[in-house]
Design a protein around this nucleic acid. Structure first.
Length: 465
DNA sequence: TGAAATGTTGGGGCG
DNA sequence: ACGCCCCAACATTTC
């Protein structure tokens, strides 16, 4: 008779869960465990929107496990000492988990693994979230990739359609006292601002499968075009589910390939960007705060301006596409990717505020906040990242809105005060001062042409010094 | 996974 | 018929 602890972290699913499957295959009994330890995530403890998601995802996992007759054991505190205590209490001989790749998590997990083994306890970690481990891919010089396309070429060639692991056939649990109720983790906001999130999302493994099917049925066929239209649900919206490991890229690939439907390469390529972000963060762990390209250490950002940042965060910049995106984010915990690029470009170029401010706000408000993706995204827009957009690529939010939301459906949805404006004015409401007065919509906080020029000039001066 | 300025082409109106 | 001009459409270059 042997018992293993299955230490859940961001792998909140039963299907294609290698740690869970291995523990069930090798041991008679398991203890499914989640330890709430935000202090172990360095400067990047989960933000408010992520905690909301985590609460509901844990609730979903708890429910699934109960249907298998097993209770998810919840704890709070230091991971290593909690594991030590539970190993003794449950008489466990090993701990199983799936890997994380953020700097703070890898450091902790390495220490945990060493300490457990010194005590004679088995410690087994698995890859549940990536196609390929970050240390398995290198370029011709044996160095980590810094450019996406060759990275993807290499990775894509390695992918197979192997069946994901099924859920373990039978779970036998040990009963342990001392677990906490989920509510005691205090993950939900005290002020109930989460109504919009609850309307938009269904956290958990079942919700992820549901979204994948909707995506495959409705959007995959014209993904290449529809993914750029923010008024449509043309993207998979699986990002928060992927972040919490409610579904894996291997499952997604396998299920989409099995349908033998439309070409899935453009979508797989986007999942490739996720993998590239994890790869970069693993090899360049300083980049959540440090510029990947050190030339940008000399860039002259505008001084931090709290009033400016507040208007950006609240969606009161007076630029319709920017405000629509920021309000979608606040209301639903998510923003369409096309719009993320636009609001980020506006913050970094037109307002010339440091990309750190944007990264922090997204970290707190996105349900899919992910350190690797967030870092790559912001450094990409700022121009300081690996394989980033050149700095002189400045998005014009009006042009982008005309191109990707020509009828203004997205703008009207998130800017109700402008909903009955004619489309021409909806895109440029400042052209009718009477409309601004009537609607109460702000005048633009900056002149797009002028601020673009200033941004380009400051980029030039960085390159010359 | 840009935008804007500049350059080129070609159709049509017109003397 | 022809050259000239205008200008939209597209292509190229620059930031």
């Amino acid at each position: 008779m042997s018992t293993a602890i299955v230490w859940f972290r961001r792998d909140l699913r039963l299907v294609d869960n290698p740690a869970l499957s291995a523990a069930c295959a090798r041991h008679d009994h398991i203890l499914p465990l989640y330890i709430h330890a935000p202090h172990e995530e360095g400067d990047w403890a989960p933000g408010a929107a992520s905690r909301w998601w985590l609460h509901h995802s844990l609730a979903a996992l708890q429910q699934q496990l109960r249907e298998h007759g097993v209770e998810l054991h919840l704890r709070e505190g230091d991971s290593l000492s909690t594991l030590h205590g539970l190993v003794a209490q449950a008489g466990a001989s090993a701990v199983y988990w799936n890997r994380l790749y953020e700097p703070a998590a890898t450091a902790r997990d390495t220490a945990v693994k060493t300490a457990l083994r010194e005590q004679g306890v088995g410690a087994h970690s698995f890859n549940a979230s990536l196609w390929s481990e970050p240390w398995q891919l290198a370029n011709g010089q044996g160095e980590p990739y810094r450019v996406f396309t060759p990275f993807w070429r290499n990775l894509r060639a390695r992918l197979d359609d192997a069946d994901p692991l099924p859920a373990p056939p039978a779970l036998r649990a040990v009963a342990i006292s001392g677990g906490m109720p989920l509510d005691a983790l205090s993950l939900l906001p005290r002020i109930r601002w989460d109504g919009g999130l609850a309307e938009a999302w269904r956290p958990g493994e079942a919700g992820a499968q549901e979204l994948l099917e909707i995506f495959a049925d409705d959007s995959l066929a014209d993904y290449a075009i529809a993914r750029d239209l923010p008024a449509r649900h043309g993207t998979s919206r699986l990002s928060p589910h992927l972040h919490f490991g409610e579904i894996s890229v291997r499952q997604i690939q396998h299920q989409l390939a099995a349908r033998r439907g439309p070409d899935i390469e453009p979508y797989l390529r986007e999942l490739g960007w996720r993998e590239f972000a994890q790869h970069l963060l693993y090899h360049f762990p300083g980049t959540p705060t440090a510029n990947f390209n050190p030339q940008f250490d000399r860039f002259r950002w505008a001084p931090d301006d709290a009033a400016l940042l507040l208007r950006w965060r609240r969606g009161r910049t007076g630029i319709p596409m920017v405000d629509a995106g920021m309000r979608e984010l606040w209301h639903t915990g998510w923003m369409h990717n096309r719009v993320r690029m636009i609001v980020a470009s506006f913050l970094c170029k037109n307002l010339r505020q440091h990309w750190h401010h944007g990264a922090r706000w997204f970290w707190d408000t996105l349900v899919d906040a992910d350190l690797a993706n967030n870092t790559l995204g912001w450094q990409w827009v700022a121009g300081s990242g690996a394989d980033a957009a050149p700095y002189f690529r400045v998005f014009n939010p009006v042009t982008q809105a005309l191109k990707f939301d020509p009828e203004g459906r997205y703008l009207r949805r998130w800017l109700p005060e402008l909903a009955d404006a004619p489309t021409r004015l909806l895109h440029e409401p400042w052209k009718d001062p009477a409309l601004l007065r009537r609607s109460g919509y702000s005048a633009p906080m900056v002149d797009l042409q002028h601020s673009r020029g200033v941004a380009l000039a400051s980029y030039q001066s960085m390159r010359e010094t």
